[in-house]
């Protein structure tokens, strides 16, 4: 069953008639789209996130991390033992030196797909129609940015995301990549086509300068700094993506 937004808002406010409310809860069991619609209307989400933005304190967490991981235990002995393995940001490529078929071989082996490839795969599913109905008010856009800032730990301001070479800000959502928060900020280009700016928290990431790449047939630019990985991606206009990436880089980082 499809419910109008006003019914869902009334449900969240606790003012919907009990029968329809029960029907919504029953439908939720098997309707992920209904679930996403309800979650998008949860006005308390950004409010509550604000209350937890400074929780836990960084120093306290560092102490706890040291207490848990610095002392050797049967469980984590193996993890701290020296090995030939080198991780790139804990996630990316691993240099493996080995023998294969009797000959020396040096090669790179991915222990997970590059996060940019995963984002590109997701972004490739976006078409004009996906974002055509997104119509957030300025207040809602601000609230989403506050929520995302809290989760990722980096201040994101509406003013930094305006006037980006004709792009229109449409939505910010929190995703995740292997336990780390991943923020996706969606824009429409002047033709209504989707472009995304993504931020992945990765405290181990070494700083890198901006580079342009084609990912899954889309123009992209990415860079790393201050414990975050950044990616601007969408469409085929590499020149626009580079310009937007440079503007964001100068404002956000």
């Amino acid at each position: 069953m499809t419910y109008p937004d006003e019914h869902l808002r009334s449900y969240l406010a606790g003012s919907l008639d009990p029968e329809t409310a029960q029907q919504i809860e029953a439908d939720l069991e098997n309707d992920p789209i209904l679930e996403q619609r309800l979650l998008a209307l949860e006005g308390l989400r950004p409010v509550v996130q604000q209350g937890f933005a400074e929780i836990p304190e960084t120093d306290h967490l560092k102490e706890l991390e040291h207490k848990i991981f610095a002392q050797p235990t049967a469980a984590n002995d193996h993890a701290s033992a020296p090995s030939f393995v080198r991780t790139w940001g804990g996630r990316a490529a691993t240099l493996v030196v080995g023998l294969a078929m009797g000959t020396s071989l040096i090669y790179w082996a991915d222990d997970t797909p590059d996060w940019r490839q995963e984002v590109a795969s997701y972004q490739a599913l976006y078409v004009k129609e996906t974002i055509a109905s997104l119509d957030r008010s300025e207040h809602e856009l601000k609230q989403e940015l506050v929520a995302a800032s809290t989760v990722v730990g980096q201040q994101l301001n509406l003013s930094d995301l305006n006037d980006l070479d004709g792009l229109k800000l449409l939505r910010t959502q929190v995703l995740g990549h292997e336990g780390a928060p991943l923020i996706q900020i969606v824009f429409a280009d002047p033709n209504g086509a989707p472009v995304a700016f993504c931020i992945l928290k990765d405290t181990d990431a070494a700083g890198t300068s901006m580079q342009s790449t084609s990912l899954k047939g889309m123009a992209s630019a990415d860079w790393t700094g201050n414990g975050y990985r950044y990616l601007v991606i969408g469409g085929q206009n590499q020149s626009r993506i580079d310009t937007v990436a440079k503007q964001i880089h100068s404002r956000v980082l």
């Binding site: 993890a79 033992a81 393995v85 991780t87």
Partner: peptide
């Protein structure tokens, strides 16, 4: 081992 190291890193994150 490379996954074990990554597992700990994911826990810290």
């Amino acid at each position: 081992k490379k996954y074990q190291k990554r597992f700990q890193s994911d826990l810290i994150t």
